[in-house]
Design a binder for these strands. Structure first.
Lengths: 148, 148
DNA sequence: CTCCAGTAGTCAAGTAACTTGACTATATGG
DNA sequence: CCATATAGTCAAGTTACTTGACTACTGGAG
């Protein structure tokens, strides 16, 4: 495989990723959730099951815990999350989604589905599934970071 | 296709894109180019053939022309680009890569090829080519933006 | 039990990469 | 040749981070 092919593939991948992020964001805004940034979405996916501590969130996002704490401040101020006392550790606080937070998460899922559906119209649904399988096999498990 | 599948696909795509950016960046640094950010790489791809104006660059990156101008300042200061008078418009200036800029571009191509090679070891080269074909078909042609 | 090194979180201040607003120099169509 | 549009820059403001310093709590060693 030549370098130029690798560059073409990389550019296409980053372009698709950038457009996907934009579409999800637009879709969330169109569903009436304002003041949310794409980074919040990645926080939501970590908070979603049972909540998480600020430190958990910092590791997940690959930022300092101060930055994670500031992000939680913002989510709390906007009504998407709240800080509850941690059941097993008095130092820690469990950050959980509010009902608005759950609603926003569902909106993001719908927006993602909409974007993926657009790919299905070009590639066909079977090929999209195959794309997903390939990407899952090469996806890392570490923190999800901004692309640049 | 269910929402949850779309979310899984989106997460995998963004994770792969984030890791690719990181690997290219690390590879460029490992080849001795310091003080470059991933955003510079996208600027390089626009400057590479024959140079471009600040406004061209701003459109390509999806930022204001002031931001593009600041980015060019930085590239000039670090020796990767220079401003030359524009042959056909005295208002404009043609920003072109220096030899160091070209060397950095080649380093980025090598790093990208290395990252893609790692995928080839998991998927096989044929499947990687197929992945590239699929991504190219759904890639937008607009400006390349940060993922979030 | 009682230290005490380690961890969870926050407060405060600094930094970097953008933005908006205002301006100069050149281009171009009527 | 004048009016309006465009290329670029300067200056200041914003925002999402960072580093550094601190308090409160934990949990194992002596």
């Amino acid at each position: 495989m030549q370098n130029s092919e690798a560059v073409t593939l990389s550019a296409a991948l980053l372009a698709v990723a950038g457009e996907l992020t934009q579409r999800i964001h637009d879709g969330v805004v169109a569903r009436g959730f304002e003041g949310v940034r794409p980074a919040h979405g990645f926080a939501f996916t970590r908070l979603a099951p049972d909540g998480a501590t600020v430190t958990d969130l910092a590791v997940h996002l690959g930022v300092t815990k101060q930055a994670a704490s500031q992000l939680v401040d913002e989510l709390v101020r906007k009504g998407y999350a709240e800080r509850r006392p941690h059941p097993a550790d008095a130092r820690a606080r469990l950050v959980v989604l509010t009902e608005a937070g759950w609603a926003c998460t569902r909106a993001a899922e719908e927006a993602a589905a909409e974007a993926v559906r657009a790919w299905g119209e070009v590639l066909g649904e079977g090929e999209v599934r195959e794309l997903a399988r390939k990407l899952l096999r090469i996806a890392p498990d570490g923190p999800i970071r901004p692309v640049w």
